[in-house]
């Protein structure tokens, strides 16, 4: 479903060139959950932006569902690939109601029957019709992240990219959101790509995960192997002992 082939990304400043990603190759089959773990500055978010066509790649390429991702991708690409941002306090328009927030992508992608779809999307993420005409500031952090997920799901994507989806939330709320995402993934057969610096969380959610450091993938490992501590890379071991 997702094919990342030797992607490199350079950022140019006046003085120097920073290579944010070095020759990253990953492959994620359809309907599976893949995780990306690394410290800040390791290139996780850059890779995600490259996958969304938001950042130009210097070499290599990303293919999603057989189609090469380019900058400013067509509407049909966005329809298939959606993204949930890290900070649900910043990613929802404070001047729009939940109804408008979920309705906007439906209008952009010319879906019929928005009324029904908005209510269904809210129901999918465990919110009721009473939340429909509220503003983001009238919702709790967990409810906001649910709205962000509902906004993605409304247009029925095949691939969902999640950038630190729960790092702004409490553990108890995190558990609810994670269970919700996993339930929806199974119901709808979504392909999920999750970024986080929280190794236990990614291990719980994903079938396979990649450990990144300094723009390179150090190790790709299945969650089962990680739990059984079949770890080869030294850096993964460091990360593992720091997370326990």
């Amino acid at each position: 479903m997702i094919e990342i082939e030797s992607v490199s990304v350079d950022f140019h400043t006046k003085l120097r060139t920073v290579r944010a990603l070095k020759d990253v190759s990953l492959s994620v089959p359809q309907g599976t959950v893949f995780g990306l773990v690394g410290e800040s500055g390791s290139g996780k978010t850059t890779l995600l932006r490259a996958m969304m066509g938001l950042t130009a790649v210097s070499s290599g390429g990303v293919k999603i569902a057989g189609e090469a991702v380019r900058q400013n991708p067509p509407l049909a690409f966005r329809r298939r690939v959606q993204m949930v941002m890290q900070d649900c306090y910043a990613s929802l328009n404070p001047a729009h109601t939940v109804d408008q927030i979920i309705g906007e992508p439906l209008a952009i992608h010319r879906f019929d029957n928005p009324e029904k779809r908005i209510l269904q999307a809210l129901k999918d993420v465990g919110l009721g019709p009473e939340h429909r005409f509220r503003f983001p500031h009238q919702l709790s952090g967990g409810q906001r992240q649910r709205v962000a997920i509902a906004r993605c799901l409304a247009i029925e994507p095949q691939v969902m990219l999640l950038d630190e989806p729960t790092s702004a939330l409490d553990v108890s709320i995190q558990a609810e959101i994670v269970n919700l995402v996993m339930r929806l993934q199974q119901q709808k057969g979504l392909t999920l790509f999750i970024i986080s610096h929280d190794l236990p969380l990614v291990t719980h959610m994903c079938d396979r995960l990649a450990i990144m450091r300094k723009g390179m993938v150090r190790e790709v490992i299945t969650s089962q192997d990680l739990i059984e501590r079949k770890v080869e890379d030294d850096y993964t071991k460091v990360l593992l002992s720091a997370s326990l």
Binding site: Q174, L199, P200, M205, S243
Partner: peptide
Amino acid sequence: RALAACRPSLTERLPELRTF
């Protein structure tokens, strides 16, 4: 107890995280 239980763990993989 509930707060301690809902963290994901690196030693076992539960089908769902515990909520309360």
